[in-house]
Design a protein around this nucleic acid. Sequence first.
DNA 1: TTGACATATCTAAAAACATCGATATATAAT
DNA 2: ATTATATATCGATGTTTTTAGATATGTCAA
Lengths: 104, 104
Amino acid sequence: MKPIDIFKALSNETRLNILQWLKEPEKHFPKQGAHLPKEVSIKGGVCVGDIQEKANASQSTVSHYLNMMQKAGLLESVRYGQWTYYRRNEEVIRQMADFFKTEI
Amino acid sequence: MKPIDIFKALSNETRLNILQWLKEPEKHFPKQGAHLPKEVSIKGGVCVGDIQEKANASQSTVSHYLNMMQKAGLLESVRYGQWTYYRRNEEVIRQMADFFKTEI
DNA sequence: TTGACATATCTAAAAACATCGATATATAAT
DNA sequence: ATTATATATCGATGTTTTTAGATATGTCAA
């Protein structure tokens, strides 16, 4: 876990929003998983297009955001067909919250 | 409390170090308060010069760092004569840790 | 195989940030 | 008053970040 990369990733309103939206995907992305057959459940994952629509930024920008958040460890991705689903990496987020509490 | 300003302030190794050093001022700044008469105790405060020396950056850079950390709410300052003593704002830091734990 | 769609990557331009030396301000000491 | 010291602010420059359009890659459907 690299705290500075995580802080950088969170230093932007849109990225911070994305992370928070993904806490409750079904609430913030009602049409979530519309593409997926029922038997495939990518729990909590939302595809780039849905995130882009809500984030109101260009496709390349959102893709870039998601990539940097993943590199920082905040998100993880699963590819299903032509879609990439991003979800929170709760383990890292929890570690970071602990780090903040005890080391900052 | 503006989380994004706080994240920005923490997105830099030197600034992150400063905040952590100030958790244990007596440990990291042995000559702390050398200028101060005993009866004036600015608990946990360290002057800019001492911080600069340890941070190994220019005086203007460190002054700027401290100012932005203060604006973000992470630090508070007390002026005593020609010195400005900076110390952590534990209240804000705690709030931020809670925010991270519950909202991120 | 072709065409449509989702996502990633590339490229470039603008905006923001980082950093320092120089200068200003404030206080202290002589 | 002058000088010295501590800190803040200014101004300039180099670096990083942001952002989007264009293009590439990969997948699906006909």
